[in-house]
Design a protein around this nucleic acid. Structure first.
Lengths: 199, 199
DNA sequence: AGCGATCGTTCTCTATTCGTTCTCCATTAG
DNA sequence: CTAATGGAGAACGAATAGAGAACGATCGCT
């Protein structure tokens, strides 16, 4: 089940390559890049990678292999820093990225925020946790959302929308739900995953 | 059984190496790094580390001794199912794996359990969460550990060890700390990361 | 259509690497 | 002295890696 040395090396090369070129390389090209002279030898490794699920061949057209989406370290998401007041999430330049396993991600565009404060601590969301957010502008009642309030403040709260008002509900005894007019609250994303590191 | 000087040095090197490189080193590479000339000599120390449980023998194929991976290669760690009563963690067959980003892993061997129950809910650990556990047999007070109690029951609790007794402390109002004799509690690992998926 | 070039695939055969075990030797501490 | 620790090197078997040949299938060309 673990990759051999060569397999690992080839996989790394494919990851790098996939970002720079649109077209998947042929076996001969790969051979040249890796210093091999025999397609057959290389193909043996590719086949092993396929069997392990790291790679799949581009079906349909017969040319090249493709990285399996959602595998490897290829799944880095933009890390937008601590959730903080007064910033449009989308406006933050995405300098950093952070690794997120596929099963924590939503279907749409995702990004990661670090949680600040204890307003959601009774929902198991602590200060310093990494929140995986799916970029959406609407939410269902009961979901935990990143909301921009009055264009000033960004918070992570459970949402309850009614025709005439929107409530942002913390999960912390001693904090009251916040009530706004619908126009005052802009949903910037919905919480789909959480990561925490101890130590 | 304490480690000898050399064993300790080798273990430290392996830990450090595991952080920087995904692929575990071969014996020859280790020899070069440690200034040894004989694989055989090194192997003797490795075998001692394995016997003490500090290092695992990445079974499977021989493609370089994969020793103590922070799992080196893949981002996938063995998933041992829900934490449940009466099972030796190590005894569970590791059929499944789960993706874990590098920043949630510890230095040593890690595996993943799914949390059952709400006994740690006030520590932000909820039913259904995925706990990343570093395989260790000792812990510091205050750490959250996977403990096997009387060989019967496995639980996730905060630990407090005293000379004459060991306390396993839940994080849930309404649940009392459990007190045992030191011999009754076997530490199977320490919590180093947490993942949760919404929806 | 015909044809050659390209490419993926499979096969066999050989070479290299690597883990493992073994024996023998050096140093140090009690 | 004896035991514990640490190292060197040879040898073995198995896993891994590579070369090269051969076979079809596809594509582009005249």
């Amino acid at each position: 089940m673990p990759l051999t040395r060569r397999q690992h090396q080839i996989l790394e090369f494919l990851k790098d390559n996939a970002e720079h070129f649109e077209q998947a390389p042929t076996l001969d090209e790969l051979c040249a890049c890796l210093g091999l002279r025999s397609r057959g030898s290389l193909h043996k490794h590719i086949r092993a990678l396929i069997a392990e699920g790291y790679v799949e061949h581009m079906n349909g057209r017969r040319s090249g292999v493709r990285l399996t989406p959602g595998l490897g370290s290829a799944d880095a998401l933009p890390f937008l820093g601590r959730i903080a007041a007064g910033r449009q999430v989308a406006a933050v330049p995405q300098s950093e990225t952070i690794q997120v396993p596929a099963h924590l991600r939503g279907h749409l565009d995702c990004f990661v925020l670090q949680v600040a404060g204890d307003s959601m601590c009774e929902a198991g969301i602590l200060d310093g946790d990494y929140a995986v957010i799916e970029h959406r502008r609407t939410a269902h009642n009961g979901e935990i959302v990143v909301a921009l309030v009055r264009g000033e403040e960004t918070t992570l709260k459970k949402i309850h929308q009614q025709p005439d008002r929107v409530m942002l509900i913390p999960a912390n005894r001693g904090m009251e739900p916040l009530v706004f007019a619908p126009a005052e609250v802009e949903i910037q994303g919905v919480l789909v995953g959480l990561m925490r590191s101890y130590g």
